[in-house]
Design a protein around this nucleic acid. Sequence first.
DNA 1: CTGAAAGCGCTTACAG
DNA 2: CTGAAAGCGCTTACAG
Lengths: 356, 356
Amino acid sequence: MPNHKPSAAATPDLLEPTVAPAKRQRGGPKGLRITDVAALAGVAPITVSRVFNSPETVAPETLKRVRQVVQQLGYVPNRLAGGLSSSRSRLIAAIVPTIAHSLFSETIQVFSETMTRAGYQVLLALSGYSDSSEEALLDAVLSRRPEGVLLTGVAHTESLRERLHNVGLPIVETWDMTETPIDMLVGFSHYQIGVAVAEHFLQRNVRAPGLVSANDERALARRAGFRERLAQADIHEIAEVLVSPPSSVAVGKAALPTLLEQAPHLDAVFCGSDLLAIGVLGAARRLGLEVPSRLSICGFGDLEFATETTPQLTTVRVDGTRIGLTAARCLLDRLAGNDRIKVTDVGFHIVERETT
Amino acid sequence: MPNHKPSAAATPDLLEPTVAPAKRQRGGPKGLRITDVAALAGVAPITVSRVFNSPETVAPETLKRVRQVVQQLGYVPNRLAGGLSSSRSRLIAAIVPTIAHSLFSETIQVFSETMTRAGYQVLLALSGYSDSSEEALLDAVLSRRPEGVLLTGVAHTESLRERLHNVGLPIVETWDMTETPIDMLVGFSHYQIGVAVAEHFLQRNVRAPGLVSANDERALARRAGFRERLAQADIHEIAEVLVSPPSSVAVGKAALPTLLEQAPHLDAVFCGSDLLAIGVLGAARRLGLEVPSRLSICGFGDLEFATETTPQLTTVRVDGTRIGLTAARCLLDRLAGNDRIKVTDVGFHIVERETT
DNA sequence: CTGAAAGCGCTTACAG
DNA sequence: CTGAAAGCGCTTACAG
């Protein structure tokens, strides 16, 4: 049967489809699209787009009409499409070891609030404490095309640092300090904390200190500062228990007997977290060791309530809220095209509650 | 100058552009695309897509070659594009009042881990405790086209419930109980907790109980159960302090004197959180009120360490980890097309530490 | 202040 | 097992 193409009769039939090709069907009926709003409001889709993204460029009358239709239909723009088209995902990734035991949850809370207020959303990526799957995690994160990344701790592996550097995104590393940040940095020196706790113990005439700590990079930095400062005071024997996360009261409790085996005259313990410190405190009580007169215990991380419930403990307080806020501001400044101080040291305080 | 269109000479010149229209330029050079990988591997883009999304349908040889190129180039697929095209965002939204004070952070931790393992990512949305901006928050969340939503607490406003129902997404409400869930529910009854704490106090022969609590919906449900059970025992006068979040040790401390003004013979306090309870405990100590013999104090929320540091307190323990895990499973089952038990009551326990 | 056309980087739905 | 074409729902880059 011959082909009856009405126009362009000179065109060879064989190169032309017999009829307009049937439109491919993609899935069932989708949700509302910008064209639905546009049609009902009697404007072009681009105008609806402007109502959301640059309302100041739209005539007040048009704005009102479109918004009315949006409201009426309950239209919510599709940001997958918007992000793809504009290369602005409005997404910020936060990579955190864990939010369960609350060391970092305040930081993320404030960070998230601040980013939300600025029109971004936070993609939460929990890395755990193992580096093993970090490459996969980073792939997952980058596949969303975030406009910025908050890291907790400095990136460890060289390969990771390189990839993060290469993507060219604004990046804030937090909760740590390094000579060679990938980009921006808001944190403090774990090494210096170790030094400070050592000095605190030395002031109390400690002779046989011990350490209970995880073996992640930050904990090891505190340990190094602690050991080196003590070495300067000619204390070289340090009882040690390295524990794996998550740290808990129970782990702290179990650690004290082991420390006492290593150092029967143990008179101070530096713990990697307040939870561990509370555990050590409990074990000390049970053994009749008075705290802090017979045994000094120092924690890390500032559990708010601890001030009230365990005045015998000393702890190292870090302002997680300030870290989150500062990190958010760094990122936002950078996203706004401004420069930013690259490194902020928020420091720390040793909080001593009861001197005897 | 005349137009020299080589073919289709019969077509009216005026309807044809003089030359092929100049391609519009969209921004600078972008990152790697699937076509870059495809070209280098000598396959079509769709094959690269299959390597990521259904590797089992690709010949081993091809698979290997493409993966090698992916590795070599450091290609990371763009999920904004992928999600738009496939209508599968692989995103799950978690809407939580706050993660800072750790009541919910364990739930989110486990939920996030579980969803990540299943190939999803979690978009974290902090709602604060005010309902005011919840509509805007929901818009922001839905604009990412998540495939499921975890809510903390049951949705409050009717408008919100309706919208959530209408989007037709799998939804889990958590940390509460209701007769009319939007979809699935993993939680417990705050009202029943109030009843149980009242009974706990009654067993201790409490005569003049008080309450320190926030005034959010869940806190008010606990209050209702508490009051109603006490009313059955003919106790109608209940000293009350309603506080606004965030609750803290300091707020708890400040509350006790106010309660004592209302009820000089106060002999029990039910607090809306463990932090408040610790504050009340501190204030009681200062006033010389012995706990629990003279004053019973019950908290809520289970701060792990509290068992160790404040054995005088009673608390209501909820398994946040189980909630997170169960919620994740509910969502995943639904996403896999299976049915799921709609309502799971994980219950609660009253943990009494020191009986005298 | 508004709009028509093209393109963002993928995947679907076919076809072979 | 592999691929060409079309389409996902927006925004960019022009043009008026």
